[in-house]
Design a protein around this nucleic acid. Structure first.
Lengths: 206, 206, 206, 206
DNA sequence: AATGAATGAGTCTTCATTCAT
DNA sequence: AATGAATGAAGACTCATTCAT
């Protein structure tokens, strides 16, 4: 009894797909192995997703949904623009650390193939960058950041963040990703803040 | 009527492969179309490369070779650590701009598949990052940069650089990539320099 | 609020199947779409029919039953052998015109596959041809027709009839099929009658 | 020595396909078995034909080409319209008898599926009917036939012919198809000729 | 009787790679 | 060295059929 255990098939498929896509890449993963890992029949995938590509998209969105929500929450909990940026980065790293598989897809499977995928990939990074832009925007407005091209810098910031995660993944996640949080925050904050006063609280680094 | 000018075939194949891999991705490119574009027979590819994967590796290395050489030259031409960093970034952008196809591969096709490719990809970014590290190292040694974790920051710096190029590619290379050089240099330099004196030469930006 | 009017489901399924089989062919029709069009669940089809093939058979028989009955009635209502032949043809055309979908199946889906289907198809034409044979038989016996090989000619007659309908179907039923009745009757009657007297009444048909 | 035995692969595939399509129908034939029967690898089919459907089309056209040519020749060798019609029918039967497999496809696989196939099928019967129409046309012009709707009657004639062949096929080609030639000719000729004088040369029938 | 989610065998098609010429 | 026809393994996807509810 209790709630029907039906309906978790879709989730199981997404989970399995995420795992494989992240591990071996989209093209090197067969629908057959996804099905097996998800504990469903080969054809079942096609009940929930109209194609393998569509499944990839679903994996993306699943991932994104969670991240965006938590990131926005986290950022909203801070007042100071600098604190927001720091939060953004550290929380971002934590989310990635919690779900390395999706992270891999998100970060590296982005742009390989069909336009459809590309579009979603672009949309994904966009969502991420949007948050970053908002935060930077505020920083500039409140005079905490120097007068930067918000859009361009948001992208660079995202790139720095991305590579940090990627390095970690390439290293088989063998160290706590969070260890990089301070170094990353520092680099980024210095990169955007006004040179005015070094009012940057010590202790934040190392 | 001397014998046909044989021997440039290997290069033609690499060039064609680079073009397609960049455009459509490794997996969505067939050896057949590479052969056709290179003006050789399908089988000929396998005289020069033992597999499609090997060909991808060759494309990478071709690309890398040129870049590394020119980057090292460029950096060597500068004295000041900051100038070196600036040079690194602007020259890097220029190289990408000159050869967008290879850039695409280098930046995004990195890690999708087999371990072999991964290894090469890692090696590629490694080469890039090595130069960056060297430069940063010197900056720290000479007291121009703050005491950063050189390795980590080199990665971030590379990430910022990468995303800048990627944005440009995603935008169909519709604007001069060099337009981003100053913004990028500024962001990076601020991120790494000592807060000591805002001795940052005006005019560099905008 | 009595129990739902169950029981017409079988008919609805047959009707839907007939429509699709006629339109797109047996093999290009899925049981799923039949079920949907019939307003029943996918599995329900298998309560009434043991397989898709069986369903095709049922469609045939449904069609045949009606036709045979009306054809026999129509023929019985005529005295003169020639009138019977004419009736047979014109009534045959009318029946086809009334139910184009079944007509299509009957005429063209006949023989594509398994022996089972073939058998039914053969049986169907057989039923049709039986009537024709009877009528021709009588014509010969009563000296109105020449001494033909009844069986063979019945087949030819059926063929002439069939192609006439098929042309109409191929033309998207864009003209009244009945327009062909006179030409067909004339052709057939001339083909079978004794050359004796050209006592062929003009306007003889309807 | 001797001409290369290359290039007959296409033919072997067509031949094998024709055999199977005729025997079991298009949909019940797999490309795999065609390949095997043709003595080539599965993929080889796709070197010569872009799809299974395309292959069916090729089978049709192969068949048609031969038939049309020989039919036109045969008809051209006769002077008298009636003799032409007789020739058309008897030669038609002979061709079918010589190549029962193609015959089956031609006659029964005509209209089952995709528009592409339909189109070819229509074109095929059209070619056949065109010849018939020409002959009938001439018969009418020269006063040998009554004033018929040439197009419609050509179709009926074709139908009579078709069913005759089909009966034979349905009977597993167990009797000489040519045995039906006279009966068919007689039926058709009577059906189209002027009633004027029974100038029909005796001896032609039975 | 009815449902419809699930199954999984079966198919077409692609494409990296080989090899006789 | 070069060719390109041929290979055949592999994979995405379909759909008739089943069965727990």
């Amino acid at each position: 009894m209790a709630r029907k255990r039906v309906g978790n098939k879709r989730e199981r498929i997404i989970a399995a797909a995420g795992r494989f896509f992240g591990e071996k890449g989209y093209h090197n993963t067969t629908t057959a192995e996804i099905a097996e890992a998800a504990g469903v029949a080969a054809g079942t995938i096609y009940i929930y997703f109209s194609s393998k590509e569509e499944l990839l998209v679903a994996v993306f969105e699943e991932f994104l949904g969670v991240h965006m929500e938590r990131l926005r929450e986290g950022v909203a909990g801070e007042q100071d623009p600098k604190a927001k940026i720091r939060k953004l980065l550290s929380l971002g790293l934590r989310l990635m650390e919690e779900n390395p598989d999706s992270a891999k897809i998100f970060l590296s499977q982005l742009r390989q193939s069909t336009d459809m995928i590309k579009m979603v990939a672009k949309r994904s990074s966009r969502a991420y960058k949007d948050i970053i832009e908002e935060v930077l925007e505020e920083g500039v407005r409140r005079g905490v950041c120097r007068k930067i091209n918000v859009r361009a810098v948001a992208s660079m910031l995202f790139g720095a963040f991305q590579t940090t995660v990627l390095d970690w993944v390439a290293d088989d996640c063998s160290y706590p990703l969070m260890d990089q949080a301070d170094e990353l925050s520092e680099f980024v904050l210095k990169g955007v803040e006004c040179g005015k006063k070094p009012d940057f609280e010590a202790g934040a680094i190392e």
